[in-house]
Amino acid sequence: MTEKNTPLWEVFIRARNGLSHKHVGSLHAVDSEMALQAARDVYTRRGEGQSVWVVRSSDIVASDPSEKEVMFEPTGSKIYRHPTFYDIPEDVGHM
């Protein structure tokens, strides 16, 4: 009953300009406006954010954990995709 009236929302917060929004948790709220206010009240009490996104949890399309091998294992053998085969000139400095 509570679940039906107050669906679940996922909360994303951008801590500073230039960073991307990061998932911080979830909450229950009746609609988008109340979800945004609840996100502010629950997740930004200590100055954590500059911007908040809320998304209905049911709107998120997720990969199937049972397909983990098909989805992600093939990349394991392709070490040449990692940028470890370059010599970085000293002049470039810290990268």
Binding site: T6, L27, H28, A29, Q37, A38, D41, V42, R45
Partner: peptide, 11 residues
């Protein structure tokens, strides 16, 4: 009534 509102009222 809910955790979310608990924090809102306390804030």
């Amino acid at each position: 009534p809910t955790l979310e509102e608990e924090l809102a009222l306390a804030n």
